[in-house]
Design a protein around this nucleic acid. Structure first.
Lengths: 144, 144
DNA sequence: CTGTATCCCTCTGGATACTG
DNA sequence: CAGTATCCAGAGGGATACAG
C-alpha cells in the first residue's frame, strides 16, 4: 500500500516533468521554467522585486539607493522588463521635477511569494550544499 | 479580525523579505535566492535536472542525446557544477570503454520539486504575462 | 565512451556623459 | 528627478580538435 503511494507520487512527478520538458525539438521555446527564469534570473530583478515587496510604492531613486550597487542604466533596464511582463507597474506624475512611482502588481506579488518559497528551501538546504562542496574540494585535492 | 489576519500575513512576508535581503552592504554575498539561482539559473542545469529526474540513472551520452542542443563541453561543465553542489552524483565504472552514470541525489530531487512548483506557477500565470506584453507592445506603438 | 583544451563570438552589464 | 546613449570589459557558451 505504501509502496503504491510512493509509486504514484513518482508517476505524478514524471508526468509533470514531461509537461515541463514538452519533448519538443526546440529547447528554447517550450520550457515554462525557462520562461519565468528569464523574468527573474538576471542580476537585478530579484532585488528589485524583493525591495518593491517591502514598501508598496517607491520612486526611481529610492529604489536605486536601496538596491545596493545597481547602476542607473541597469535599474532602468530591469524595471522596463518587469513592467513589460506585468510584474511591476509604473506611474508617471506630470510634475516638475518628474515623479515616477513603481510598485508590484498582483502578478508580481505572486512571483514574490514563489521566490520566498525558493528562499525557504535554500535556507533549509544551504548547509548540505556547502558540505558537498567541501567534499568535492577535498576529492580534487587528493592525489589518488 | 480578517483585516488582522491579512496584516499578519503581510508582516510575515516582510520579515521573510528582510531575511532574504539581509540588509547587507554586499549584494552578492548574502541573498540565499541568488545562491540557489546560481545552481540552476544557467542555460543547461534545469534541463539536466529535469532529464535526470525522469530516469534515475543516465550515462553521459544518453543525457547528451536527451538534452536537445547541448554541447559536449557544456554538458560536462553543467554536470560538474551540479556534482560539486551535491545535486547530482557521478559514478565511474572502471571499464573499457568507460561507463559513467549520473543520477540525482536526494538533495537534487528536492530541488527538482522546487522547480516543478515554479513550473506550476508559471503555467498558471503565463497567460497574464503574455497579455501584459501585448499591452506593453501596443503602448509603445501608440503615438500619444 | 567520456571527457579536456583551445579559440572565438555574443550578450550582459558597468562607467560615463548627456537630456527633458 | 528620471531617464537615454554610447562605449567597453568580462563572463558564458558554441565549435572544433585532441586524449585516456
Amino acid at each position: 500500500m505504501e509502496v503504491t503511494n510512493i509509486e504514484n507520487q513518482q508517476l505524478t512527478i514524471q508526468k509533470k516533468i514531461d509537461k515541463v520538458l514538452c519533448n519538443s525539438a526546440d529547447v528554447e521555446s517550450c520550457c515554462p521554467i525557462k520562461d519565468i527564469l528569464a523574468r527573474f534570473g538576471d542580476k537585478w530583478s530579484i532585488y528589485t522585486i524583493l525591495t518593491l515587496g517591502k514598501q508598496e510604492k517607491l520612486r526611481f531613486n529610492e529604489l536605486k539607493s536601496q538596491i545596493n550597487g545597481v547602476s542607473q542604466r541597469m535599474l532602468t533596464v530591469t524595471l522596463r522588463s518587469l513592467e513589460e511582463d506585468g510584474l511591476v507597474s509604473r506611474e508617471v506624475y506630470a510634475e516638475i521635477p518628474p515623479r515616477v512611482e513603481y510598485s508590484l502588481t498582483p502578478l508580481g506579488q505572486g512571483l514574490l511569494l514563489q521566490l520566498l518559497q525558493l528562499a525557504d528551501w535554500a535556507k533549509l538546504n544551504v548547509d548540505q550544499i556547502l558540505e558537498a562542496r567541501e567534499r568535492y574540494g577535498k576529492k580534487s585535492t587528493q592525489g589518488v
